[in-house]
Design a protein around this nucleic acid. Structure first.
Lengths: 208, 208
DNA sequence: GGTGTTTCTGCACGATCGGTCAGAAAAAGA
DNA sequence: TCTTTTTCTGACCGATCGTGCAGAAACACC
């Protein structure tokens, strides 16, 4: 589907500049959205001229699409790493830890995906119904199996995964609201507190 | 602050047209965002001309701001109705029910607020740090008191509220992803299943 | 140093969008 | 009915934005 570069052969300058553009685009797109962002803003943030941006990417949409695509694999890696071989509760709590770490360290990526899905995800489309669904179904089956074995309490594995997504990503996507409500005093430990809270809830819900 | 109409005196036509514009704007803004939406799209959706839209509102931003403001009170009403006089578990589960009902019946409003906060909420600002913080602090205190009285297990009330926001709104804001993952088969009961799941988790977490 | 390729810029076009304004049309009030 | 106010429209403007293109500048290779 992706008409991606048939020749991934890139010069040093191409690699550097493309990376700089990606970094700048992540900044601008995550803050303003696809339509709110302008090529000038991205160019300025990348320290390049607008025309030079167009030289490396065929237009604004191309940057956006390729940026999304380049981030997708890392974005779902925590779930992919959830292993059927591990200790059930450990695996799930590790998953929560990694998701919270991403909310802390990659809020721009979280907001980028959130905005995309929120607005219809025209650029993800099959990625959701195919790849993501397959991955989630597979991991849900692993969790369901743990429940059958009596190693976890029985709850719906799909909604369990949804609830982990929701709670962890909430602290990235809605960080502004969280900070506004918590105030400056309690806000300095909000990520640690949130992680402890989520894990506490999940342990209570999942202990056999 | 709001230079809102000093005279709320409105003719019948004004009321009807303003309402039609609000309805159309909610459609367009929730789908495309503030910058992605155009006056022509709103006008077309409202069955009016672009100039007529400008006649009733002073520009696009004004529609957006007044729309947000007009929805805010209803949006937080479920939390406002959480009563210290009620039975603790009932009150919290009723709150979840009402939030899920809003995700089901008011997804446009949910996405509108989500996008606004996600992108910095320049139009809410003090509304969050003042009104919302006050409301949440007040209700968190109510819940904390229930815990002191031994009527609920002790967990952090603020993060409890955040987790309810996150889980319930997830099914509105990320409905596309939820549907993609669940598939058409399981998706028809997704709201009922989600509500049951969330309540189950909260009961487990909150039972003394 | 010469040559071909890659990288970058100046210029400018066309499209879109938000907003203005005079005046027409419709409604309300007398 | 006549007048006043409200409502609506057509024409248009300035600004912004994405994009194309010719050619300059920088670079790589021999």
């Amino acid at each position: 589907m992706a008409k991606a570069d048939v020749s991934p052969r890139r010069t040093r300058i191409q690699r550097e500049k493309r990376q700089a553009i990606f970094e700048a685009a992540l900044d601008v797109f995550s803050e303003k959205g696809l339509r709110g962002a302008t090529l000038d803003q991205i160019a300025s943030a990348a320290g390049l001229s607008k025309q030079n941006i167009v030289y490396y990417f065929n237009g604004k949409e191309a940057i956006y699409s390729q940026l999304l695509e380049s981030l997708l694999e890392e974005w779902v890696s925590p779930l992919r790493d959830l292993s059927a071989e591990g200790e059930p509760m450990d695996e799930i709590l590790t998953y929560v830890s990694r998701k919270m770490e991403m909310s802390r360290k990659m809020p721009r990526e979280s907001r980028l995906f959130a905005t995309e899905i929120l607005h219809g995800a025209p650029r993800l489309g099959e990625m959701l119904t195919d790849d993501l669904k397959t991955l989630v179904d597979e991991k849900a089956a692993v969790i369901a199996n743990w429940m059958v074995e009596g190693r976890l309490a029985t709850i719906d594995p799909h909604h369990l995964i949804f609830s982990i997504w929701a709670m962890t990503q909430h602290y990235a996507d809605f960080d502004l609201q969280v900070q506004a409500v918590l105030g400056p005093v309690r806000s300095d430990t909000r990520f640690e507190d949130a992680e402890a809270f989520i894990k506490h809830m999940l342990v209570r819900a999942l202990l056999p």
